[in-house]
Design a binder for these strands. Sequence first.
DNA 1: ACATGAATATTGGAT
DNA 2: ATCCAATTTTCATGT
Lengths: 261, 261
Amino acid sequence: MLLSWLEDPNADDLVAFLNDELRQPGRWLQVAGEMEVEYHGRAASMADAGDYLLILKPDASLQIHAARGIKPLNWQPQVDDVHVMQDGGRAVLHAERRSPAEWVRVAFLDAAYAVAMEPRDHGTRVLQGSEADMQRALAANPDVIEEGLEVVDVELPVEVGGIDLMGRDRDGRWVVVELKRGRATHEAVHQLERYVRHVRTLVDGAVRGILAAPAVTEPARNQLHGLDLEYVEVDALPAPPAEVEQTGLFEPAGLTQDVES
Amino acid sequence: MLLSWLEDPNADDLVAFLNDELRQPGRWLQVAGEMEVEYHGRAASMADAGDYLLILKPDASLQIHAARGIKPLNWQPQVDDVHVMQDGGRAVLHAERRSPAEWVRVAFLDAAYAVAMEPRDHGTRVLQGSEADMQRALAANPDVIEEGLEVVDVELPVEVGGIDLMGRDRDGRWVVVELKRGRATHEAVHQLERYVRHVRTLVDGAVRGILAAPAVTEPARNQLHGLDLEYVEVDALPAPPAEVEQTGLFEPAGLTQDVES
DNA sequence: ACATGAATATTGGAT
DNA sequence: ATCCAATTTTCATGT
């Protein structure tokens, strides 16, 4: 991964560097240091001077991270125009998005470093344990939900939304199944209730509603019972996550380190 | 912002560097280069070798970014333990979280650089235009929703959830108001319908339901009408976002640059 | 620790 | 372009 970089640049050098690099396609930039950040658009925010990390990716997404949290302090999923200029002796970056109309302005008070990378094509990524995976697995093997259950439809669109699994139990009753990959809340119960109520207007005979999830919140479980709906415990992942000790691969040869919290 | 850094380190140097820096509290680390990333926990994922950016913040949050998108490829909001070690000639970082049990493993195939920063205390940040702001503004000035509306309660907890605004109109009828800071969808309509239905079981007389948002999706609007509920357009931000041209502050002295997409 | 609901949610898919 | 639903959602705020 080619890269060029600047340490502790002054405003002139930083402006020149950024303008230079932004002219090249495919660049991935990072600038760290003391900044002020302002945003106007879907909301509006203003951050006083602080030490932040600005990331500008080759896909023209921008994010500014503070020293804590997963989520950026400010961001823009798609930057349509970016300008870098000098303003009052400071390097200033202005990123604009057309739709929705919004902009982020970063004033660099004291840049610690700036890096421009040129990443090669990234590798592929596979993810297991999504709700779609669950749906596929359960559609192929409905017995996990209930002995004798037959799946008739998957992601069946009805007026009030999409029914995850539609089936018939061993007694021929219709069964509406709502899936959640995580702990199901009362929202999931409301969804299921809506679907069941809707299906009851469409078909004759009994209609059962089953919430299938690895866990339910206590209030949700109570609501379920009150509405005469059912809960079945279903895991999102086929196998439980392997522990470090179980794999045996990652025994620390280096230092064992507890992270500060 | 103090920092130390390494360019194009070999496995030994990277392991030593990371172990060294992780021992210090308050460090903010970034490592860029070719990596393999594996995750097991709430889900499971595996990313082939690719150019990524790993960020380990002083609050013990970890994220690994690919060259596109706002969201990281992998992350961990709270790392309880990290180990850095050598494995088959590669530097390997293993980050573990206890609850929920999950881990991320990063194998560095070709690190381009590693930086350790020590950020000072960050500045303060103010955000305008949240739903809470909307709620406050409308509670203080309900005429924006409707002439003569009187707000009786804010965030009123009822069995089926929390009612954003509860009021009475000029004719003394109860009014349930559901707020959305963005475009309201059919989910908001369902929420409002639930609240209105519930309130009707609690009080005598007519109960109106109003969805207050800057916009509604077309299906949601149709559902509203079908349920005899109402929509009022309300902006989340007091003033529209200022354009670059309007401020006059950010005229590019530097290069005007269109970002590649 | 658990539950709840907002978020500049982002992201991918369907229409 | 719009709408919809999942997300390892994260995050703040209650209880």
